[in-house]
Every structure is written in C-alpha cells, then in structure tokens.
Write a protein that binds this DNA or RNA. Structure first.
Lengths: 199, 199, 199, 199
DNA sequence: CATGAATGAGGTTTCATTCAT
DNA sequence: AATGAATGAAACCTCATTCAT
C-alpha cells in the first residue's frame, strides 16, 4: 500500500484497529488482525505505534478526551438545567457517532490495577465529578431534597448511561436504537430523574 | 485423608481462582498463578477442570446462577412491590457477600462474540427480563405512567446497580460502603425511582 | 525428550550451546539452533535459562571462573617460578580441554561497552593483574631488569597465550596441536621469555 | 555542488560507519545508526553500498589492505633487522592513526565460518607469514637458535601486538598510550624479543 | 490421585532492504 | 541523486496443556 498518503496512514490504522478491538476485544485482537484489516504490513504499523497497547491507548485517550473536552463547565449566566442538558446531548452525540469506540470503552472494563484501567477509571471519575458537582449545586439551591445521597445518584445516572450505551453497542442487529436516549438527553430533568425513561 | 477431601480441592481451587481473577483479570491471570495461590500442582488442577476457561466459566455460572435462582417469580398472593424489594435485597446480599466474584462480573465485560460474553449477556438479559416484567405489570395496573419506556427504565435500573457494585468492587480502600445501597434496596419504590438515591 | 533426567538437562543444554556458539558465534546462533542441537523444545530451554544471553553468560562465567579459580595466589614457601609455571600449566590444561569454550572467549571479543564485554574484560584484567604481580616481584628481586615495562610485558604474555589459543581454536583441521604449548608452559622461564617459543 | 561531491559521500559514510561500528560493534550497529551519523537517507546509503555487510567489508578491506601494502618485502640490499623494524613502525603508525578501525579489527573477531572472519583470518595469516618468513631467514643464518619453534614465536609476536593494540583501542580514558609501543617497534630486536617490553 | 518437566503454537517486535516519488 | 515510508522475514519469548512417573 505504498500509494496511501502518509498523513492518512495513522488514522487509517486507528480506524481499523477500533473496528477489530470492538469486535474481538483487546486480548483476542492480534497485531496481525489489525494489519490485515488495515491492509498494512506488520512493520509499517510499528512505524506509527510503539506496540499494540499504544494503539489501544491512543484510541481510548482520543475518544474519552474528546468527550471530556466537549463538556463545558458551568457558567452563572445560564440556567444550570440548560447547561446540563446541552452537555448530556453532546456526550450522547459522541457516543452514537462512534459505536466502535463506545463498545470498547463499555466492554473493556478489565480488572482493577490491570493494564488499561487507570485511564477508564479516571475518565468515569471525571464524569461522576461533573454530575456530582451539578447535583450538589441543585441541592444547595433546594432543588433537590437534602435527603438525597448525591454521590449515589451520580453513580446511578452514570450507570444508566453506560448500560444503555452498552446494550446499544453490543446490539449487533440494531434492535435498540438510540433515538429515545437522544430525546431523553435533550429533555432530561434532573429533579425528575424518573422521567428520564419516558419518551 | 486426601481422598476424603476430594470435593474440597475443587472448591479450594475455585475460591483461590476467584481471588486471582478478581485481582488481575482473566487474561493477566495464569494457570501458574492459580496453582500457586491454591497450593496445587499444575497437573492436579487439570484433574478438576478442563482448562483455564472452564474454571472461569464455573465461577461465573455458579455466581450468576445463584443470583438468578434466588429471584422468586411473581405470585399473585403478595403485593408486587414487596416481592420486588425482597428480590432486590437478595441480589444485593449476594453481591456484598461475594466481592471477588462481583468484581469479576462487573469488570470482565469483554467485547461481544468474544470468549465469555455469552454467559454474562444472558445473565444480564435475565435480570432485565425480570425487571421489565415487573414494570410492565405495574404499567398495566396504571401504577406507572403509560408514557414511560419500560425497556429503558429497566436498563437504567440494571445500570444503576451494576455501576454501584462496580464502584464498590474496584474500591480498594473501601471508601464506598454498601450499606446505603442495602437500605435503598429494602425500601425501594419503583414508582418513585428517584428516591432510590436517598438514604 | 521426556526421558532425560532433570539434573542433566541444564548441563546438556549448556554443552550443546557451547558447540553452537563456538561454531557460529553468538549473534548468528539462534535459540532454535541451540534447541535443535540439544534436542529440546523451545519452551524447555526457557525453563532453565532466562534467555539466550543468560546461556552465553553462564558458559562464559563458568569457564572464566574455573580458570581464575585454578590460579593459586603466591606463597612464600615455594619459588615464584615454580608457582608461576604450575598456574600456566593449569590454564593451558583448562584451555585444551575446552576447545569450544576457548574458541568462544577468544573469538567473541565484541566491541567495548557492548553486550558481554564486561565479563571478558574483567577476566583478562585479572589474568594481567596476576602476571603483572609476578613480574613486579621478580623485578623487585632484581631478576628482571628495572628497564622493563612490566605492564607491557604482561600484555605481551597474555596476548601470546590468547593468540596461540585462538589459532588452535579456529583451526578446524587440527593442523596446530597444543603439545608444544604445553611443554612451553611447563618449562617457561619468565626471565627468558624469548625461550618461550622454543621446544 | 552535490554532484561534484559524489565521491565524498562514500567516504563520509565510511568514516561515520567506522565510528559507529567501533563504538557499538557490528551487530549492535543498525543501518539507521549509520544514516543518522552520516546525515544521509537510508535509500541514499544503498546507492553507495550493497548492504550493511558491504560497508563493513569495505572498511576492513581498506584498512587491512593498507597495512599489508605498507609492508615491503625483503630485499637483500639491506639488513633484515632494519627492514623488519621499518615495517613494524609502519604498522604501528597505521594502527595509532586509525583508532576506530583498529578497535574494529581487534574486537570483532567473531566465530570462525561466521560472517566476516575470512578476511580477518587471511589478514592475520599474511602478517604471520611475513613474520615467520623473517624469522626463518634469521634462523637459517644462525641468528636464532635452531631449537626455537618459529611458528609459535610468530604467533607470540602477533599476539603481543594485537593485545597491546586491543588494550589501547578499548581504553576509553586513554590511560594507555602507544608511545612505548612505538619506541619498541623502532628498536625491536628479534633476537632479543624479551627486550621488547623495555622502554 | 498427584506431580511438574516438557511441549510448541502463537504472539510480539525488529530491522535490513526496496522502490515509488 | 536522493528520499524515507513500506515491507516481511526472522528472531524472541510465553504459557496453556499434556503425560510419564
């Protein structure tokens, strides 16, 4: 494949690797698999990445990074609820537009202290931090009952999103579509979390 | 002496394997690791299990099996809500009493079509099925608004439990304790899902 | 080769490795080559040695170690010349009885600061140290002219032995035999170094 | 500009290669290393040399060739001793003025039948041949005792020179200087080889 | 029943060499 | 002439599994 343009190579390999990782999982994916899918020789791959781990890390870092970056911090000039919904929409957008990567991050939650966990744990920690911050503000305002355990509620919300994303990502036949989730994200009212599951 | 303990050997290996799998993850765990932890020779291990996968599968099957088995189907002789809460409590019990196994099932959610997914997917499918069944009944009774997407709500509930279990299982320092979750499970009102996060 | 006795395996591998290293040199020798020669599976070799380097190091360390150990330090109870000759004889013995290893240490004198040099340099340094010590004593006694540069003379002697050993070791057809050298070693008179080459 | 310097390119690469080979040894030196040092692209290098081996061979051939060429064959018009000393001086000159190349030829004495040995063995054989020729003449003249094993004496002399050159070449800190050797070479008396090490 | 030495398939990685630009 | 991205053969090493004792 001497014809492909240099600057594309890296992206090409990343895209193919994402597909293979999504399909087979990290461990079951061999460098050979990625090479075949990318139509690239083994040695070529090593020109762009240090090793298999590096490819995976790059994918994860790019994806989680862009999700985190799209989340805007709270400003006082706008209702909190509006900002929250906008951020949720962006995240749902990121997820729906990258099925492969979503599948990877919701499926490769390997054992703690193991290979990649650190990144993922950090990523989820940031999301929780964000949600918890928003909920705490609302609680201070009296919009959320003081009896609510804000930390647990944050986990609940994160778990909800992860689970739906997971079910969607592993759904080979596309039985589950993300439209309802998108609607929910738009109209989501924190104070009425139960409503989340409504249409 | 040794012969009388035959069945013990198997259990011993399983218990040790659970610990190692929980700590290192499936792939990073070698047969050697399990042998060392179990104080058993390599050949011996293969007298009790077909292969590494078999050990893992047995652990998962036992654990998910007992969780499923503890869930009693609905009878008409008792309020649905009561039955639901009892089942949730049993499940939370199972989880809190088996931290290693919990960690494994929430952490090894490898990619679809890969090695172990089938079991886990089936397990979660059954949980969803149960929850969805309950919610549907409630919806028919008019206890839940007809606008609610019951399937999404089920995923939300499952995701919530998984996430909290995950955070608890990977929490090395035991910062997070499960008591709030246990209380919630006992008093959980489906119709007021938001309350779940309260204390 | 499940029949070979455990304790022999290591020695068997070392002996075969010595032959292959002697024939092809370190770099041209692959683990495969050693396995074939030893009639041992690849994995088996790694039960006994960490890697190729470890095998080589072990060989060198054993051989140079035994040469050094056979050299007895000077005592005052015996004429220096006698002790010196005895040590030379032992060394020549060690060399002649281990053609493979001799070939390796005289042929693999790779570039400084590179992989194995340290050991070899240290080994030769010790030999020089020994010789220099003896010569210095003789010089103090007046047996060797004060004009002689003892350090250079030591190198000369070491170089002489190395070169003859080298020529013998690389001599496939055994044209050169070591008997003259053995005789020389026995009758060697330091003060009359020129005589060394006599019969 | 560039075209005029075509021949320079080759020399430039050779000089840089010598440095790298001397520092790292043949095997540890990669084509990349040589390219970096020479500030030349990989493909360019292959315009001037067939392969890595070719570069190395060229270096060795040039150096050993010039040493051999500088040795003048014996004429009857001049005392043998004088001619011998002049030749030794030339050789010592060649050595001292090319530390990199000297280091290479004394350090890369890889195993027989291996890659480059042939050249080196031939080179040393020629030196021995020359020395042996001279000694034999002297022996015929009665200048050297008939009891002397001329072949061994030749090896001894060659080994001496190689060893001193080796110690000098690998001596990073320049503790050992070649001046004594140069003096020795000038005043060297074969019949009094022992004196060689004097100052 | 129990052992653990031996196996070898299968993976990762390197690097001399080529060739389209 | 010069370039350097691409190649792929060949090496290393691991580890689940077997089997003679």
């Amino acid at each position: 494949m001497r014809t492909a343009k240099k600057e594309n190579r890296r992206e090409q390999i990343l895209a193919c690797a994402a597909k293979v990782f999504a399909k087979k999982g990290y461990h079951a994916t061999s460098i050979s698999d990625i090479c075949k899918k990318s139509d690239v020789a083994r040695g070529t791959l090593y020109l762009y990445f240090e090793n298999k781990r590096d490819i995976f890390d790059t994918l994860i870092k790019n994806f989680t990074g862009s999700i985190i970056q799209d989340i805007t911090m709270f400003s006082k000039d706008e209702p909190l609820q509006l900002q929250f919904n906008r951020n949720m929409c962006k995240m749902v957008d990121n997820i729906t537009q990258n099925k492969d990567l979503t599948k990877i991050i919701v499926s490769e939650a390997v054992g703690l202290d193991s290979e990649f966990d650190h990144q993922l744990i950090l990523f989820y920690a940031r999301l929780v931090e964000y949600v918890e911050g928003a909920l705490t503000m609302l609680q201070k305002n009296g919009d959320i009952s003081a009896h609510i355990n804000v930390r647990l509620l944050s986990y609940s919300l994160l778990g909800t999103i992860k689970e739906i994303a997971y079910q969607w990502a592993i759904d080979g036949g596309n039985v589950l579509d993300m439209d309802p989730l998108i609607k929910v994200a738009k109209n989501f009212k924190i104070q009425n979390y139960i409503a989340f599951a409504g249409e």
